[in-house]
Amino acid sequence: MARLVSPRRGPVIAAGAVVWRATSRGDLEICLVHRPRYDDWSLPKGKLDRGEHPMVAAVREVWEETGHQVRLGRKLPTQRYEVAGRPKVVHYWLAEADDTAGPREPDDEVDAVAFRPAEDALERLTYERDAELVRAALDGPVRTTPLVLLRHAAALSRESWPGPDIERRLSTPGIRQAEALIAVLAALSPRRVLSSDSVRCVDTVRPFAERFRLMLELDPSLSEEGLRAGPNPHRAGDVVRSLLSDGPAVVCSHRPVLPLLFEAAGTDPGPTLEPGEFAVLHHHEGRVVSVDRQSAGVA
C-alpha cells in the first residue's frame, strides 16, 4: 500500500537587525542576545506573525529581544539556511540602538543582552552567518537616512472613473494597501510626508500622516498633471535633491514621475514600481548608498 507523502512546507520567514551604538569615544558596538534554549550568542531576530511585513517584524523582534525601539537602516544580505529540514529565510537590516532604552529583564527566550565592540562581537557570535552580516554592516556607513519613493496604492481604473483624473480614488485593494503602509513606513520613522496633490496619492499616505500627526505636504510638481504642464518639469527632481540633505521622508508620486525622482537622487530606477510598492533610498552625506525595494504586502 502506497504511503501518503505530505507536501513540503514552505520556508519559515523571519526578520531581525544588526543593532549598533557608538560609544562616547566613537567606537562601534554591536548588540548580541543570548538564547538559553540554544546556549548561543546571536543577532536579534524572530519569525513573522501571520500577515506581518518583514520590516515590521524586524522592529518588533528587536524590541521584544533587546528592549530597544529602533528605526531600520540599510538592508543587509538575506540569510537562507535549513532548520530541522525546513528552509528558513531571514531578512536583516541595520538599526541604531535606542539610547533611552533600559535594561531588559531576562526570560526563557533571551537571558542576556550585550553590546560588544565590533571585533569582539565577531568572535563571540556563535554562527558564522551572523558574523558575515556584521561584516556586511560595517562595509559602509552604519548611520544613514531613509528617503522613501512610493508609488501610490492601487486606484480605480481610468476607464471606470467619470471625473477628472486628478480626483481618481483608490480601489478597495488600494485602501487596504494604504492601511498596511502605516506600520511598514513606521519602521523607517519618516518625519516628513510629501505627496502629489492627486487624490490617489494623498489617500495613500494620509492614513500614515494622520496616525503619527505629521503634516501632509502637497506638491503639484509630483503629479502627472504637473509633469505635463510645466513650466519646469524638473521641479519634482528639485524636491528629491533637497531631501537628500534633510531628515527621513516619504514621497508619494506616480509611475511616469518616479523615474525623474530616481534620476535626481543619482540612482537607477530599476524595474517599474507597482502600485503600493516603494524604494527606500538610504543616503549618507547627500549620497545614496543603498536602495531597498519593498511593497505594502507581506513577504
Rank of each mutant, 00 (worst) to 15 (best):
R9H: 15
V18A: 13
S24I: 01
S24P: 06
R25V: 08
G26V: 05
G26Q: 01
D27P: 00
D39K: 01
L43W: 00
L48R: 07
E52H: 04
M55I: 00
E61F: 05
T66Y: 09
L72R: 06
R74M: 04
R74E: 07
V89S: 04
T100Q: 12
V110N: 06
D111H: 09
D120P: 00
A121Q: 00
Y127L: 10
E128T: 02
E132A: 08
P146K: 06
P146N: 06
V148N: 06
S157W: 03
W161F: 12
I166D: 14
G174T: 06
I175H: 14
R176M: 08
R176H: 10
A180K: 15
L185N: 04
L185S: 03
A186N: 10
A187N: 09
L188E: 10
S196M: 09
D197Q: 05
V205K: 07
R206Q: 13
R211P: 01
R211W: 02
F212V: 02
F212A: 02
R213G: 06
M215Y: 13
D219S: 04
S221H: 08
E224V: 13
R228F: 08
P231M: 08
N232M: 00
H234P: 00
G237K: 12
V240T: 01
S245E: 14
V250F: 00
V250Q: 01
V251R: 11
H254W: 14
R255S: 12
P259M: 05
E263A: 15
A264F: 02
P269E: 12
P275V: 08
G276V: 06
E277P: 02
H283C: 10
R287D: 13
A296F: 13
A299V: 06
